[in-house]
Design a protein around this nucleic acid. Structure first.
Length: 261
DNA sequence: ATGGTCGCGAGGCGA
């Protein structure tokens, strides 16, 4: 979102228009005390939020129930620059909504291939994937959605110019990052949006700088990864590119999936 | 026109 408070009016209008049952939000950029609770109450949603500072922050809003809320996943890695105390970051919140275990995820940005945030990002994904694989293994009928900003473009056509990314040595497209993403697929989770939104040139994020949006220079880095039992219920999906337009837009577009009853 | 964006929270950081 790049701040929920700054876009509260847009979110309210979007919920009104879209009429969705469950919304997973990333980068609320606030603590609980500054969270716009009334917005969701007014719209008939229950909401759970996890925010520790002006950074990160994740939430789930639901009008089909919200139970067993978990803030951070088990063994979620902490980050600390060498010599400094490691801190837990507000990057994951889980809740059961209408029989679906929903996780709103804000995967760490690796920043640069040789930055210490990169191993943090890869480890964060690896631990999450290990647990997610166990959830599916223990209960093959489990309906689980891993959704949010993965900060990875898994295929070359998930960025506007892969040669540019390679020549600049940019993140999001490296082998280790892509392997970390594909490990979720190997663990039984599938991207349920791509089959309904084929590329190339289909993105979920456009940088604010460099006129990336009008130039159609985006990245597909936001996903809904579903367990087999949930994937079987998906009847459609879309990326709401219209929401990236106009004054006060987030740099990400909402990603939606529709489920059969 | 040789740059070009946001938000948080009060200077610089993070994306």
């Amino acid at each position: 979102m790049n701040s929920l408070r700054a876009r509260a009016d847009r979110v309210e209008a979007w919920l009104q228009r879209t009429d969705c049952d469950v919304l997973a939000i990333q980068e609320t950029k606030c603590k609980d005390e500054n969270f716009p609770w009334e917005l969701f109450e007014r719209m008939g949603y229950e909401v759970a939020h996890f925010g520790l500072s002006q950074w990160n922050g994740v939430a789930i809003a639901s009008r089909v129930g919200i139970d067993n809320v978990e803030r951070t996943f088990l063994d979620q890695p902490v980050f600390g620059k060498s010599g400094k105390d490691a801190v837990q970051e507000a990057r994951a919140i889980g809740a059961t909504c209408g029989g679906v275990r929903v996780w709103s995820l804000y995967v760490p940005n690796g920043r640069a291939l040789d930055d210490e945030h990169m191993p943090y990002k890869l480890n964060w994904l690896d631990i999450l994937k290990s647990h997610a694989g166990t959830w599916v293994k223990e209960d093959p009928q489990a309906q689980i959605a891993l959704m949010g900003d993965f900060n990875i473009a898994p295929q070359d056509d998930d960025v506007w110019d892969i040669d540019y990314f390679r020549s600049e040595g940019l993140t999001h497209v490296s082998g280790p990052e892509r392997a970390a993403f594909h490990a979720f697929e190997e663990a039984g989770f599938q991207d349920v949006v791509r089959p309904h939104t084929p590329g190339p040139g289909v993105y979920t994020y456009w940088d604010y700088t460099q006129l990336r949006f009008p130039k159609k220079e985006g990245m597909r880095i936001d996903f809904i990864l579903a367990s087999p039992a949930l994937a079987a219920r998906v009847t459609g999906a879309m990326i709401d590119r219209e929401e990236r337009k106009g004054k006060g837009a987030s740099d990400h577009a909402p990603v939606l999936a529709e489920l059969a009853d």
